[in-house]
Simulated scan of single mutants.
Amino acid sequence: MSEYQVRPATLRDAKAVAEVHAIALKAAYAGILPDDQLSALAPASRESKWREAIEYAEPQVHVAMLDGEVVGFVGFDRSRDPKTPATAGEIWAIYIKPEHWGKGVGVALWDAAREGLDEEGCTTVTIWVPLRNDRAMRFMELAGFKREMKTAGTTAVGTARIEQIRLKRDVS
């Protein structure tokens, strides 16, 4: 059993979610994004986005807690990709403080998202992962996700272009 507890986020968690997002992004994208863009990843720029997501459950947000501290979060909902069936879900975001990487937080968050997507009637789930984010790619593949090779493309992060690919698996 994991020492991490996962629960739905509340509005009081928005600041902590934004902090986890910024810290984890900086660590995960080191060597992928230019240094000036990494340094611009500030929690303040993300707090209102996460406050709104939590308030309107779009996406649904769950947090992983350890000793009263938010150490990770997952955002999930129906797929935002065009032409996907109503039964397709998506992990919109999953981020964990780097000092908690490899300790079971990601699995606990994935389990919560999978349960939530199942309750929503989703039968499949996707996630977009940067090709150069080896840690995320490895985690998602270990969780049973498979690359959809025809989905490879680029997305803008600030002024940088990031190559990414969609991964997919059944919810159950």
Score class of each variant (00 low, 15 high):
1 M>Q: 10
2 S>D: 10
2 S>G: 03
2 S>V: 06
4 Y>V: 04
6 V>H: 02
7 R>A: 12
10 T>P: 06
11 L>S: 13
11 L>C: 07
16 A>C: 05
17 V>C: 04
17 V>G: 02
18 A>F: 04
18 A>R: 01
20 V>W: 00
24 A>P: 00
27 A>T: 05
28 A>S: 14
28 A>Y: 00
30 A>I: 02
31 G>W: 09
31 G>A: 09
32 I>D: 03
32 I>F: 04
36 D>Q: 06
38 L>N: 00
38 L>V: 01
39 S>Y: 06
40 A>E: 05
41 L>K: 01
42 A>I: 05
44 A>K: 11
44 A>Y: 04
47 E>K: 12
48 S>I: 08
51 R>W: 09
51 R>P: 02
52 E>C: 08
53 A>C: 14
55 E>S: 15
57 A>V: 12
60 Q>K: 15
63 V>Y: 04
64 A>Q: 02
65 M>Q: 11
66 L>E: 09
69 E>L: 07
73 F>R: 01
74 V>G: 01
78 R>T: 09
80 R>F: 08
81 D>Q: 15
82 P>F: 09
83 K>C: 13
85 P>H: 13
87 T>N: 10
88 A>M: 14
89 G>N: 08
90 E>W: 06
91 I>V: 15
91 I>P: 00
95 Y>V: 01
95 Y>Q: 01
96 I>E: 00
97 K>T: 06
100 H>I: 01
101 W>H: 12
105 V>K: 01
113 A>W: 04
115 E>V: 15
116 G>M: 11
118 D>L: 15
120 E>F: 15
121 G>N: 10
124 T>R: 14
124 T>Y: 11
127 I>L: 08
128 W>M: 12
131 L>N: 12
132 R>S: 13
134 D>L: 13
134 D>H: 13
135 R>P: 06
137 M>D: 08
139 F>M: 07
140 M>W: 12
140 M>D: 02
140 M>K: 02
140 M>S: 01
142 L>Y: 11
143 A>F: 12
145 F>K: 02
145 F>Y: 10
148 E>W: 08
150 K>T: 13
155 T>F: 13
155 T>K: 10
157 V>Y: 04
159 T>S: 14
161 R>H: 12
161 R>Q: 15
162 I>K: 07
163 E>C: 09
164 Q>H: 13
165 I>F: 10
166 R>S: 12
167 L>A: 06
169 R>F: 08
170 D>F: 12
170 D>E: 14
172 S>T: 14
